[in-house]
Nucleic acid binder design. Structure first.
Lengths: 341, 341
DNA sequence: CGGACGGTTTACAGCGCTGTAAAGGACTGC
DNA sequence: GCAGTCCTTTACAGCGCTGTAAACCGTCCG
């Protein structure tokens, strides 16, 4: 079997607890003792058993991150940041995917992690306020994303209304007037962004034209392309700008425009949302709303830490975003990578 | 405190072990007893403590997945598949990033997971055969990726030489003769792919032209774009095809070609590697080598399961790939999504 | 020189669960 | 009616670690 604490203790001729003290960096251990124990640890090749430690300590040293799907660029990037933020807190991260399955989401709330984790960072697509309120599990929980939570748990978000408003206002500032939107308002994901879209137009005295709004049912590029195709087939005059719910959709939209002989941004300017890494590799590079994902991750982890320390009043935590202007709205002249990273 | 097994037992008026049997689906429990216990579990709101269970069972029910960086599309997608394959085995997954840091990679080998996991899926960038051979930790380990491992541990790979050969042969089949390569051979990542590139050319009696080979130092699109820019600046006649080490690099290359007024694929055909999701959203869509990631994940998890059952002879496990032909080599006529998904 | 004191080490219980082995009951066949 | 058998339930130790409290030990001070 693997060496245990007791084996090290025997080897060094000390008590188990002293070895434990050395391992955990307890201060009042003499230098001689420390050296002797460390040597013994090395000799027997000891590694602590974390299950046992967790049981004894009553803490897991681990949090769960629950996201819809890891190969979606937004969640991949977010996960990366959560891993980093958690590491700084001394937590390792267990990742779980729901694929938007309501049953799996409920299982998360029902305590499927069984005290194996000290907290849960959860990005739900299906479960709502009621189900969250009724959960019995006491594991600290923090929610991400746009679904409303009505103060039943900590919630980290960006102001999607303001972000969409900023994106659309940017298009209007460029002189565009027929601004289409691809990707809303069906499904709650787009609700806030649709709201921002409408707000920006209304402020300039432009009415929302239903002909210029096409919903998509996933965030895939193909969906964006098909939606743009459909819109162009329907209209006599194409829009002069498009606001897209996500960057991936925007890439599809650009593709559609290109295949219809429309130039981006000369004929049609395009803005995306999320600022995925490929924004700078596409042709043209993509203007996009860039949420501060690092901040989302940091705040989420901080929330769990606070809850673990006993904080219990649910908070709504807002983090920043910025508009990164690239070729798909600003064009190519001297702007090959205008505000890129 | 949270309810424990004993609390449920008291409530139901049975022994702890019977409750345990019910929870673990032990067969020889009478229906009446099962119902009584389940009711008690529900009444007190019991959830098993997994740390305690793991300690008692001597198994963790968890594996670690160690990758360089989660926001790289290849690893994001791979991670998704590993999560799914692990779930089928009843394992949850702890994810850790190394960012290619040699120290962190060594820590993985040194047993930093301390029996908290039943196995490790590791995609190393730095550590080599020797370090792996010398590790003392006995946790089952399976390696992914192209670094050679000389039979010191299970290893899941695709045949990168054959894959690159196939990609380049495809370009040659199209009648291209000046086939450039972006992304090798510096750094071991590209070695096999470079080999396949050379093999395909040689087989047709074409010599490798060093002027047509530009290494890149990361897989970012910007690097690909810069590399292509440099090559075009250097050459009198541009290549008529480019084989790129990754899709992301290919997107940058296409961008560079576009900005130099070269048409893809009419003037220059482009092939990528990895088949990232955006391959179908770019303009043009991208021809690419598509490794069977699901198989990689499946085999990796199966390897850990086998090792846990006592299997000890390290194996080299090869999984499949395919060439997905899209617009960047086949062009647009009737081929808008030629061999897409 | 005795007692108080602070630094250092130890003994031991217990975290919550499961494996083992054995006890308890019901049923079977002779 | 009794032993043998099978199904069901229980008792208990122990997984490997840490927290608590107490023991130990040398030093300092009055």
């Amino acid at each position: 079997m693997r060496p245990r604490l007791q084996d090290v203790a025997d080897r060094a001729g000390v008590s188990m607890k002293t070895v434990s003290n050395v391992i955990n960096g307890y201060v009042h251990v003499s230098e001689a003792m420390r050296a002797k124990v460390l040597a013994a640890i090395d000799e027997v090749g000891y590694e602590p058993n974390l299950s046992a430690r967790n049981l004894a300590r009553g803490r897991a040293g681990m949090i769960a991150l629950v996201v819809p799907q890891l190969d979606m660029p937004y969640f991949a990037s977010l996960s990366m940041h959560v891993l980093e933020a958690a590491e700084k807190q001394g937590w390792v991260v267990l990742i779980q995917q729901t694929r938007g399955d309501a049953e799996k989401e409920r299982a998360v709330l029902a305590g499927r992690f069984g005290q194996r984790v000290d907290g849960i960072v959860f990005s739900p697509l299906r479960v709502g306020t009621d189900e969250i309120r009724q959960r019995r599990d006491r594991t600290p929980l923090v929610l991400l994303g746009e679904r409303p939570v009505d103060g039943v748990a900590d919630h980290v978000v960006i102001d999607n209304v303001a972000a969409a408003d900023l994106a659309v206002s940017h298009l209007l500032d460029l002189g565009r007037r027929r601004v289409a939107m691809i990707g809303g308002p069906v499904g709650s994901t787009g609700t806030h962004r649709s709201e921002g879209y409408a707000a920006a137009l209304t402020r300039r005295g432009i009415a929302v034209d239903p002909d210029l709004v096409v919903p998509v049912h996933s965030n895939r590029g193909e969906e964006g392309e098909a939606a743009m195709d459909a819109m162009l087939a329907r209209l006599d005059t194409p829009p002069d700008a498009v606001f897209c719910m996500t960057d991936w959709v925007a890439l599809g939209v650009i593709r559609s425009l290109h295949l219809h002989g429309l130039r981006v941004p000369d004929d049609v300017a395009v803005v995306g949302f999320d600022d995925i890494p490929y924004s700078t590799a596409s042709t043209p590079t993509l203007t996009s709303i860039s949420p501060d994902r690092a901040a989302v991750a940091r705040e989420a982890v901080a929330s769990l830490a606070a809850q673990q320390k006993g904080e219990h009043e649910p908070r709504e935590i807002e983090v920043g975003f910025e508009l990164v202007v690239r070729e798909s709205t600003a064009g190519g002249a001297g702007l090959r990578r205008p505000a890129g990273r």
